[in-house]
Design a protein around this nucleic acid. Structure first.
Length: 343
DNA sequence: AAATCGGGGTC
DNA sequence: GACCCAGATTT
């Protein structure tokens, strides 16, 4: 693309953005000098999370933690509670860790400083340095990848290729606005399934549109097979006051939930054995089966047999604890059974 | 480079 | 059910 074409393309997209860009709550303040706390919270929240869903969490989070000092001083459980249901909980743990650093050292003053914070990778560092420091760093997210793949009719855009294209196209005069403009275009016009090429300010330069098959770019990514995982879970107490354990490790790490024990459904008797093992560990006495809950995650499908049990450690208050959707489903199963006794 | 990590929206 | 979402981190 010639320098003249690049200049025209930039003008067209920024004009569209100034007119049609989304009005979002974290976009307050001067262009290139946004409030770093709000921008940072929003960028982390929006990692692999659609804007429409992020809006509610953003409001809750800022209400709970109005400043980075509030966030740094808060217990991790409170931070996870504000993140409850949003997924990818490492984001909340990293946000809390990074807040300790920022409370001590202040907000980063360059791309490298952002990148050094836990939970901030190349995308987020580029976004935040352009939005809060006016640095000419091009973001590379799912929207940018799709927009640029279509613009150049590239079916297999590698991360390196996308970054090079994004760097070349970025308008150095308005880096923050440019980044937001490309993402807004990808989210509202150049959508994955049914792009509105007729309304796109880039259509004069777009090879994907010229091909009449814009959705062929980029080619869909191959997805791994979803694995089925089974476990028994026990409810000791009531849906309001129950024995909860804090989950460790990567999956749902830091959240609380019902004690569980996985088993191999292909092995006869494995489920009953898992229930015995679980109750022996607590220790508790197994009771009746309350029901089954299933929960779909991106890369696995979880099925729990939920049993009542008695004994065990002292039940704790469920209300204040950060729980996964799966645990909420298990608890409402027990609630539904309790309700049915009175109808 | 490939796996792992949630939950929901859209078609 | 397939595919995706303002990706980061670990293996």
């Amino acid at each position: 693309m010639s320098a003249d074409q690049t200049a025209d393309l930039r003008t067209a997209l920024l004009a569209w953005f100034d007119r049609q860009g989304r009005d979002l709550p974290w976009r307050q303040g001067p262009e290139g000098r946004r409030d770093p706390y709000r921008a940072w919270v929003a960028e982390v929240l929006l990692q692999q999370t659609q804007v429409a869903r992020g809006l509610g969490y953003y409001h809750n989070f800022l209400t709970a933690f109005p400043s980075v000092q509030d966030l740094a001083a808060a217990p991790l459980d409170d931070v996870l509670k504000a993140w409850e249901g949003c997924g990818y909980y490492a984001r909340a743990r990293n946000l809390h860790r990074a807040a300790q650093v920022i409370a001590q050292q202040g907000f980063p003053e360059a791309y490298g400083g952002w990148l050094a914070l836990p939970g901030v990778g190349p995308y987020t560092a580029a976004a935040l340095s352009s939005l809060t420091l006016n640095e000419a760093c091009a973001v590379n997210d799912g929207n940018v990848r799709r927009v640029l793949a279509r613009l150049h009719a590239e079916p297999q855009p590698t991360p390196r290729w996308v970054q090079a294209q994004a760097d070349a196209l970025l308008d150095p005069a308005r880096p923050g606005a440019w980044n937001e403009a490309v993402m807004d275009l990808g989210a509202t016009i150049c959508t994955p399934k049914s792009p509105q090429c007729g309304a796109c300010p880039l259509s004069p330069w777009c090879a994907g549109r010229a091909s009449a098959q814009p959705t062929a770019y980029p080619a869909p990514k191959a997805r791994p097979v979803v694995q089925e995982v089974r476990a028994v879970a026990v409810l000791i107490g009531t849906p309001q006051q129950a024995v909860l354990e804090q989950r460790a490790g990567g999956l749902l790490g830091g959240l609380w939930g019902l004690p569980t024990q996985p088993y191999d459904p292909a092995r006869p008797g494995a489920q009953a054995q898992a229930l015995r093992d679980l109750c022996a560990r607590l220790p508790a006495t197994p009771g009746p089966l309350l029901g089954e809950v299933t929960h779909a995650m991106t890369h696995r499908r979880v099925i729990w047999q939920v049993y009542a049990a008695t004994g065990g450690p002292h039940p704790t208050d469920v209300r204040g604890a950060p729980l996964s959707r799966l645990d909420h489903k298990a608890l409402s199963l027990a609630q539904a059974r309790a309700d049915s006794l009175f109808t």
